[in-house]
């Protein structure tokens, strides 16, 4: 892959990570410090239903589909950003799984 294309993907990944982090910080409030290594459940104060609701917000924000079983593997905020990135459409961003096809 040419170096330019790699840079584009890295830039998109950074943007996704930043956006996911921003949205999550907004959801849990300013009282908690959250970064990409934070645990989505232990460090955010969100219960399991709230995490599923947040994933639904991400689906609408990025216009993607993230099936529930994908969330089971998510531990950190970084994992969540990776799940979003894997499901994002077009522009060389990796696609993954049955519902990622055909976008």
């Amino acid at each position: 892959m040419p170096e330019g294309a790699t840079n584009v993907i890295m830039e998109q990944n950074n943007q996704i990570q930043t956006r996911v982090l921003d949205l999550l910080c907004k959801k849990v409030g300013a009282a908690r410090l959250i970064d990409l290594d934070s645990s989505v459940v232990d460090d955010t104060g969100l219960d399991s239903v709230s995490v599923m609701d947040f994933v639904m917000e991400l689906e609408d924000e990025f216009d993607i589909t993230i099936p529930l079983d994908q969330i089971a593997d998510v531990r950190t905020v970084g994992d969540l950003a990776n799940a979003v990135q894997a499901r994002s459409r077009g522009n060389g961003v990796a696609q993954d799984g049955p519902t990622g096809e055909g976008h």
């Binding site: 599923m52 689906e59 609408d60 589909t65 529930l68 049955p98 519902t99």
Partner: peptide, 26 residues
């Protein structure tokens, strides 16, 4: 199967999620 949640009692949101799946097998 893949499970996808849509917003409670919100047909528009359901339609949006179905549209994202358009063309996928299954």
């Amino acid at each position: 199967a893949d499970t996808i949640r849509f917003r409670h009692n919100n047909p528009e949101n359901l339609a949006k999620r179905l549209a994202r799946l358009a063309g996928t097998p299954g």
